[in-house]
Amino acid sequence: MTEPVRRRRSRPSVLASSRWTPYLFLAPALVVYGAFSLYPLVRALQFSTYEWSGFGPATFVGLQNYADLAADDNFRAALGHAFVLMFFYAVLPLVIGLALAAILRRGQVRGMGFFRTIIFLPQVIALAVVAVAWRQIYAPNGPLNQFLQAVGLDNLARGWLGEPGAALPAVGFIGTWLEMGLVMLLLLAGMGRIPNEVYEAARLDGAGAVREFFAITLPAVRAEIVTALVLTVIAALKTFDLVYLTTGGGPGTATTVPSYEVYRRAFELKDVGSASAVAIVLTVIIFVINLGITRIGEREA
């Protein structure tokens, strides 16, 4: 008699194992993230420990580039300018966006979809176009000065991008115009999730518009505020193209920011090591500030 054929148990494949499924789905994204984000960051960290012009041999200098940055007045000034831009890119858009979003939410403006598209429009316009347009607006004979002269404020007319005291706020105001629509849209989306019954109950209790805002609206959109601050702070600290196309870091060094310093040191001064050190310091600052914003938002939630 022939022995019965034993069926061999098939081992479960790796693909069929539910334990490995999440990693398999994440693997392509992790590969792309590692290739285009982590690897350049690691290379920049490596370059920051060398004295290198971008061509030829490099000399290992350890942390000397970072020590030089600590004593560099131009770099400290660039950091100060970046924090000034944070006020225009993050704080002002948040304050204005909160006020306008609350007014629109309370007033139930018709055509909200069209209005949201209009206020978000600066986000989809190429920054090169934005820079050229605002250079024309800020020109000595541009629309802004013509308007000031027309209303009798001739003493306020000036070359906005050519004066050291006015250039940085002028660039910052462009950032306010750019980011205000994004912040306002995020806050409107958050306010749209608040049930109308909550506002009706507050009004029955005699709450006014200001009390409604601080007791209901503001706590409900805390997550959107944190998101808006993270996005706008990153935009402020990594601003390069707007500065490069409007002022070129000038007049003098009045509008120089760390991201512009990376470009200047790498391509104008041919000091790749110092430029990489600036980039690493800027990355750490962005990470620390946004980590602090996120932690504060989570703690107060």
Rank of each mutant, 00 (worst) to 15 (best):
E200D: 13
A209T: 09
F213W: 10
V226S: 15
I216V: 15
V221E: 02
P219V: 13
T217A: 15
A223V: 12
A215D: 13
V210A: 15
G208D: 13
R211D: 07
I216D: 12
G208A: 06
Y199L: 08
V221W: 11
I225H: 07
R203Q: 15
A207V: 08
L218K: 04
F214P: 04
Y199E: 11
I225E: 00
V221K: 11
L204V: 14
F214L: 05
P219R: 08
E200P: 03
A215G: 03
A215P: 06
L218C: 01
N196C: 03
R211H: 11
A223F: 07
E224A: 09
I225T: 14
E197Y: 01
L218V: 05
V226E: 03
P219W: 07
A220F: 04
F213V: 05
A202V: 06
A202I: 05
A220E: 12
V198T: 14
V198S: 06
V210W: 13
P219N: 09
F213Y: 11
R211F: 11
V210R: 04
A207T: 02
V198F: 01
G206S: 05
A215L: 09
A209R: 10
V221A: 03
L218Y: 15
L204P: 00
A202Y: 10
R222E: 14
R211E: 14
A207P: 08
E197Q: 13
I225V: 15
I216M: 11
A228V: 02
F213I: 04
A215C: 11
A209F: 13
E197P: 00
A209V: 10
A209C: 08
A207K: 05
G206R: 04
E200H: 09
P195W: 01
E197N: 08
G206I: 00
A228L: 06
E200V: 01
I225N: 10
I225S: 12
F214A: 10
E224P: 12
E212D: 12
V221I: 15
E200S: 08
A207S: 06
A202W: 00
E212H: 10
G206P: 02
I216P: 04
E224L: 10
E224R: 09
A220Y: 00
T217I: 12
V210C: 07
